[in-house]
Every structure is written in C-alpha cells, then in structure tokens.
C-alpha cells in the first residue's frame, strides 16, 4: 500500500530531563503504516535536542516565544508554510496553546494548516486555577484549590487548607508544604520562576495515576491509556511507567473527555485515595511526554489525531496492552558546529 504523504509541524522538541511531548509524538507518527510523514520541528531554543534528531525531524524552524504574541507567530508560520506546505500542526506546550488556538481558524482558512485543539473557553475552563468550578460542572472529584497573589493571602488561607498543602505554579511546578515556612518559600520560588498567581491545593494522600487521552471534539473519546509512574525524577517527571488495567479510572477519564467534547490530546492526572476515590489534580491540554507508551500499548494517538484534524472519521480504540512499560533514557547526540550555526544564525536547519 502506498503511504499518504503528509507534512506535520510539531513543537515541544525539548527532549530533556523534563521533556516536552514533541519527540514522542513524532515517534508515534513515524510508526504509522498509513502515512509517510514529513516532520517540521518548531523550536524556541537552539539547544532543543529534537532539532538535531535528523532521523525524526526533517527540518526545523525557530518560532517566536509565546510571550511575543500571535502576530509574530502568524508571520513566522506564513513563512514556514510557504517553504514547507504544512498540512497539520501539533502544538505541544501549555504556554503556546493560547496563541495556536486563537490562530487556528486563520491557519486553516488562510494557510490550509489543520489542527485539533479545544476552543478557548474549554481550554481556559480546565485551568488549574479554575479546577474546582470545572469539577463541579462536569461532576469530577477535585481537591479544593484557590488562586492567590500574595503571601498574606497564603497565611489567610492556612485554616481552610491546613498542612500539608500543595503550592502550585499556574503552568508548571508543584511542591508539598508541611509548614508555613515551607509554603512561603515555595510561594516565592515558584512565583519567581513562573509568575503569579500561585494555586493552593488541598493535599490528597494516595497513589498518582495518569491517563493520556484523545478526544475528537464531537463528544467521543477516541483513545485513553492509564499509566502509573514507576520511577520519578527529582523534577517529579516520570522516567518509567506501566500501563494499568483500571476500569474505573478509564471510565472516569472517558466520561470527562466525552462530556467536555474535548478536541485534541490531553493528560488527566489523578490521585487515587486509599478509599479508591479518584481526585483529578490537573487536566493538561496536550499529549503528555509519555504518550509514546500509548503507542507501544496499541493506541497510536498522534496518528489518530492527524486523521481527525484532516476531517477523517476515526473509530475509538477498543483496547490496549496492560503491563506495558516505558523506560526513558538519555543519549548524547554528536552534532557538528555547522548544524548549530544554521539554527542559531538562520533560524532554520
């Protein structure tokens, strides 16, 4: 069978110790038996390893940081599309999604670039700071949480949350504070790095379990695979994990994706309490960095996402292999200085 040729632009090429999902997404695409994907890497920094992974990424372009806004991004994508004729774009960073969602109709209508993303209201509704309302609206158990902007507010909320409490950044980072001193220290540390607000969250004791899922935006959960971390780095990232046979977890996750009419990839992070209750800690609006495990277990979510983005009907995955592990590793790429020079000077390679 002749494979269909499709050009896909992918961000999140930072395959580092706290990896972006770009490279695992690309690996899923490269495993496709139906498509012959040409991969265009979109990077923010010259040292993102994916830029130099020539067997996975055919060509890379630097794009402006999300803080630059939509206009510079659109301008850059116009140029890249002129050169590469992109069919689908898969943004993989939380912080860039706002711009890509806002631009999605322009990208589609003007440049012919498809994507599969939630609308902006849905994207905002599952934000960490609004998780309580989100839980109430969609009937999901969530730990109590509150958005704060100052240390005084933290102290004011001590009685309500009690220690230990979780102190979280609005996009990244979370620490468990056992005392007021620790909470204040985490408040400063996280807000210095990621800005305000800070989110205080009730600490729920139990086992962390995660689900990678794909919604088609029409109320169907196309695929979902649950995983438990087996090895965690000092940054709290999974370095190894295993697929689970947890029907209740799967049911809750599918129901969430379906009720939301979620479009695109997502990661649902839960704590399973000793009583067997599942508390949703976060819903990340893109594939997780461990999404390739879903592929290894029999559900190629990135490939299915491309088909949906192209307007094709995709049946729901019925099953996956339980007890499948991923074990991450680090690997030194040897790169000629001229390769680095191209991306540093020309912004493309």
């Amino acid at each position: 069978m002749t494979k269909r040729k499709i050009t896909v632009a992918v961000t999140g090429l930072n395959n580092i110790d706290s990896p972006g999902p770009g490279i695992p997404v690309i690996r899923g695409l490269k495993d496709s038996k139906e498509f012959d994907f040409r991969i265009i890497g979109l990077s923010y920094e010259t040292m993102e390893p994916g830029i130099y992974m020539n067997d996975l990424v055919d060509k890379s372009y630097q794009i402006p940081l999300p803080s630059a806004g939509m206009e510079p991004l659109l301008e850059r994508l116009r140029y890249i599309n002129y050169k590469e004729n992109i069919d689908v774009v898969i943004p993989n960073f939380d912080a860039e999604l706002y711009n890509f969602i806002k631009l999605s109709s322009i990208l589609k209508n003007e440049l012919g670039i498809s994507s599969l993303l939630p609308d902006i209201d849905l994207f905002e509704s599952r934000h960490k700071s609004k998780l309580c309302e989100f839980g109430e609206k969609y009937d999901i158990l969530v730990p109590k949480s509150k958005m704060i902007f100052s240390v005084n507010e933290l102290i004011d909320n001590e009685k309500e949350f009690e220690y230990p409490m979780v102190v979280k950044g609005q996009y990244y980072d979370a620490s468990i504070a056992a005392t007021r001193e620790q909470a204040i220290s985490y408040f400063h540390k996280i807000s210095n790095k990621w800005g305000l607000p800070i989110i205080l969250q009730q600490f729920v004791s139990g086992t962390e379990v995660n689900v990678t899922a794909l919604g088609d935006g029409k109320g169907n959960c196309i695929g979902a695979v649950p995983m438990r971390k087996m090895y965690i780095t000092d940054k709290g990232k999974a370095w190894a994990g295993i697929t689970l046979d947890d029907k209740k977890l799967l049911e809750i996750s599918k129901k969430t994706v379906e009720n939301l009419k979620w479009a695109g990839g997502c990661e649902l992070e839960y704590i399973k309490s000793k009583e067997g209750k599942y508390y949703l800690l976060e819903m990340n609006p893109r594939f997780p960095a461990w999404v390739y495990l879903a592929n290894g277990a029999g559900q190629n979510h990135p490939e299915a996402m491309i088909k949906i983005a192209l307007g094709e009907d995709v049946p729901c995955f019925e099953n996956y292999e339980v007890g499948k592990l991923f074990i991450r590793y680090s690997y030194d790429l040897i790169v000629d200085i001229s390769e680095f020079e191209k991306i540093a000077i020309l912004g493309e390679k």
Binding site: R228, G241, T243, L244, D245, D246, G323
Partner: peptide, 18 residues
C-alpha cells in the same frame, strides 16, 4: 482475580501496576 502470576514467581497487579 486480575492478578497475574508467572512460572518464575513474578506477581503483577495490573490495577495498581505493582
């Protein structure tokens, strides 16, 4: 009932991943 036990004595609980 989901517990898998291999001949080598490896016990796997697929619900918890243990």
């Amino acid at each position: 009932q989901n517990i898998a036990v291999s001949e080598s004595g490896f016990v796997f609980n697929p619900t918890t991943g243990d």
